[in-house]
């Protein structure tokens, strides 16, 4: 019965007439439903090609298979070859992603807040410094880039809102944005005293340079000045002379307001004199 429709395969199969299921059999019906295209051409195909295809493929000899594989290999370019265009080289990743996201609507991400504000601490700090130090005098006085700014080893005078000024040798400058602070070492009632002052604190009305260090300190923190050998002791005399000179100058200049800026300038003047 296996003759006309599947002639080629039948030939491949040779004359072996396998047991072909009848048209009414369940196997035939199922096969017809699964592979209707095999039955479309010839309605009168008597034989069901149940095992025709695998049988045919089995007929392919080893050489045939290898030749086909060779052909395929030749047609496929090696992904690492230099001649290769980048499109095929990188085609693996997008395709995988595409498969991963296929059928799903991907909404584009909004721009990150990092683009808008990469350093929020700087943003907040800058705004609060602008509020606390509108003239920028304090920032300039303790800026590292300012050659005329205050350095460790200088004698600084801090005028406070409470009224009591405090003078001492600056032995440490802690630069932390709005938290920038200075450590002054002086004497009160002949007792060594160290005081931390927040540079931008509203309780600090002004900081003036009383006397500059003779030489640039080669250390960032002059903690050695706490020892008896290096202790500067009282800076009261220096401060008194400075204040007297400043008062004289101030009256001569026409009562110039001695703010933080003036203080820095005054200190500078004093430094130049020596």
């Amino acid at each position: 019965m296996a003759t006309a429709a599947f002639s080629t395969r039948a030939v491949l199969r040779g004359a072996s007439k396998a047991a072909v299921p009848k048209k009414t059999s369940l196997a035939y019906q199922m096969h017809k439903q699964l592979y209707p295209h095999l039955y479309a051409q010839n309605q009168d195909a008597a034989a069901a090609p149940t095992d025709a295809i695998p049988e045919a493929s089995r007929q392919l000899t080893e050489s045939k298979v290898s030749s086909i594989l060779e052909k395929e290999r030749a047609s496929r370019k090696a992904p690492w070859s230099k001649k290769d265009t980048p499109s095929s080289r990188f085609s693996v990743l997008p395709s995988r992603t595409k498969r991963h996201t296929s059928g799903i609507v991907l909404h584009p991400a909004k721009p990150s807040i990092h683009k808008q504000c990469p350093d929020p601490i700087a943003t907040v700090t800058t705004s609060s410094i602008a509020q606390l130090d509108p003239t920028g005098a304090r920032t300039r006085l303790f800026a590292k880039t300012n050659p005329e700014g205050a350095r460790v080893g200088d004698i600084l005078l801090v005028r406070q809102r409470t009224g009591d000024p405090f003078a001492g040798v600056c032995i440490n400058i802690r630069r932390r944005g709005v938290d920038t602070a200075i450590l002054l070492r002086g004497q009160l009632t002949r007792v060594g005293v160290e005081m931390w002052y927040k540079v931008y604190s509203p309780l600090v009305e002004g900081i003036e340079v009383v006397q500059r260090a003779k030489k640039r300190a080669r250390r960032a923190r002059l903690t050695f000045m706490r020892t008896v050998k290096h202790d500067r002791g009282s800076v009261e005399n220096v401060t008194r002379i400075y204040l007297r000179q400043k008062a004289a100058l101030g009256s001569a200049d026409g009562k110039k307001k001695a703010g933080a800026v003036g203080a820095a300038k005054g200190g500078n003047r004093r430094g130049k004199k020596r």
């Binding site: 700090t125 609060s128 938290d179 604190s201």
Partner: peptide
Amino acid sequence: KRGMTALFDTETGKR
């Protein structure tokens, strides 16, 4: 969390 800083109250001077 991006980090810490301080705010000063201009009236009271409180940090």
